[in-house]
Amino acid sequence: MKMITSSFVKHAARIVSITLLGVTLGHSPAQSAGDLPEIKAQSWSFSGPFGTFDRGQLQRGFKVYKEVCSGCHGLRQLHFRNLGEAGGPEFGEAEVKALAAEVEVKDGPNEEGEMFERPGKPSDAFVSPFPNENAARAANNGANPPDLSLMAKARVGGPDYIYALMVGYKEPPEKMKVSEGMSYNDVFPGHQIAMAAPLSEESVEYSDGTKPTLDNHAKDVSAFLMWAAEPKLEERHKLGFRFMIYLLLLSGLLYLAKRRIWSRLKH
């Protein structure tokens, strides 16, 4: 399954890159943007039919999100309680409470009819950095940093793409002129991305002894976003295994019953 998935991912990535090539060439023939490299499949703890998330990796990934990404990107489908749920980063109850309390949540109206801010509770959703798209664009030079809740399912390649994007910042090729405020990225369609390289060596401090390299940061945050997009992945794999065993046994029984019954047709 793992192999099938990764080869599909490769294949799909190729289809999309060819398509994008067509689109970019069609619209702005001056741009030499066609050569999108293949998104390489990384080895993830969660891929394959028995895959599970690596708790430590998710916790580190959350830290990367919180300290780097969350300045511009929301995660609005998530609630703080999710951070403590089984199959996720599994922070302790007290930690979840503390993490929730770090943000100010708008609530109300109170008895005077005023909206007010209060510290977050585990039942609150993550608060997005900008109240609406216009505010986001105004603060980001016209670009709208997308919400990341489903990013790992909303791009071909999923977490592999996110990882490739994070480590894909490079010097542009000599002939290419990168517009002001934009950065060159190897895997971003069109190669010009409004987000400056967000991660580098030692962007975030790790407390569990993991080396704070760019590669680790990128991997951890990609894994975390995969969990954010698919929080029931572990439950799905676990139930799937049991159901498959059941189906195999039932097929066996039905096959034997079928043979037994049809053997009555003697000629």
Partner: peptide, 11 residues
């Protein structure tokens, strides 16, 4: 249904 389950649970 096994084929169905393979999609539902693994892809």
């Amino acid at each position: 249904v096994m084929l169905f389950a393979a999609f539902v649970f693994y892809a």
